[in-house]
């Protein structure tokens, strides 16, 4: 039995090792190598962390990731609660609507934002015609645009995580809190939130990782004016042909994502055994 399992898992493991782990190891090695001499060096990292532009981009990426995660939590919590308490049939329908954005092409979806946020886009047109502004405002290539685009993209992940956690909270427990004198908000904060903490941790990790590694949205809505790690990586690799610089950015991005995941895992409340 054990041997059968090993054999069954082996092909997938091999695939992942050859096409994922190995390239990553090469990437890691390359980031520590001097491109000319091939010797071990920390110069790539020193340059990344000392240069002001890459510092700004790194901090911006973290800040945007955090902001987007917080906005997602605030938007998703009440909605998820309502969804989790819908009767099963209507919940299935509502959930398929929630994941609809995930099934549209990311490029198409992001270009749709240009129609709204562009110089001659919807918002500028409305503001100009009402006389609130005199010349078009620059709305794209701003942090705000990236936040909007990524929040829209990642909200379904947050909602999915929270709903699946909240579905497991028995209605009785909520009613018990109500009967003991807790109003709706207190019940939500003291019962629903702690009991859906697992979903919150999962959702927040997905959204944070998703936003610091996202590519299409920052390219289209941030452009070269508002670089994030992912777009910086492309710039280094495809435009500046600075291969080592690109590998450094890649490693920083991967390590940051992993570190945040580990940190959240360590900080999360002890999983409470459910009945």
């Amino acid at each position: 039995m054990r041997r059968t399992i090993t054999i069954l898992v082996l092909p997938a493991l091999l695939f992942i090792f050859i096409f994922f782990v190995l390239p990553l190891l090469f990437l890691l090695a390359q980031s520590f190598q001097d491109p000319e001499t091939g010797q071990l060096t920390l110069a790539g990292y020193a340059e990344f962390f000392q240069k002001e532009t890459s510092q700004i981009i790194y901090v911006r990426t973290l800040r945007l990731g955090l902001t987007i995660t917080l906005i997602n939590i605030v938007l998703a919590y009440p909605a998820s609660y309502v969804l989790a308490r819908l009767p099963a049939k209507r919940r299935t329908l509502a959930m398929s609507l929630v994941i609809l954005p995930l099934m549209t092409n990311p490029v198409a979806r992001t270009y749709a934002w240009l129609i709204i946020l562009g110089r001659t886009g919807l918002i500028n047109n409305v503001l100009l015609s009402t006389g609130l502004i005199e010349s078009p405002e620059r709305l794209i290539y701003t942090e705000g645009a990236i936040i909007l685009g990524l929040t829209q993209l990642l909200l379904p992940l947050m909602i999915l995580s929270l709903v699946s956690a909240m579905e497991n909270i028995p209605k009785d427990v909520e009613e018990a809190a109500r009967s003991l004198g807790a109003n709706g908000i207190t019940t939500f904060l003291r019962v629903i939130v702690p009991l859906s903490a697992d979903g919150l941790v999962l959702g927040a990790t997905l959204v944070f990782t998703g936003s610091i590694t996202a590519y299409v949205t920052p390219v289209i809505l941030g452009g070269n004016r508002m670089l994030m790690l992912s777009t910086l990586l492309r710039q280094r690799a495809m435009m500046a042909f600075d291969e080592q610089g690109a590998t450094v950015v890649a490693v920083v991005m991967i390590v940051t994502a992993l570190a945040v995941n580990l940190l959240v895992r360590m900080l999360r409340p002890k999983p409470t055994a459910q009945r």
């Binding site: 028995p170 427990v173 018990a176 809190a177 109500r178 009967s179 004198g181 019962v191 409340p269 409470t272």
Partner: peptide, 28 residues
């Protein structure tokens, strides 16, 4: 609303708060 009726309610499923200790449950 239920929270202002001053009733004690015991459920078939007990409906204890799994994330709280016995003391915290009773003190709720």
């Amino acid at each position: 609303p239920p929270n202002k009726r001053d009733i004690g309610l015991v459920f078939q499923s007990y409906a204890l708060f799994p994330h709280l200790t016995v003391n915290q449950n009773v003190a709720f």
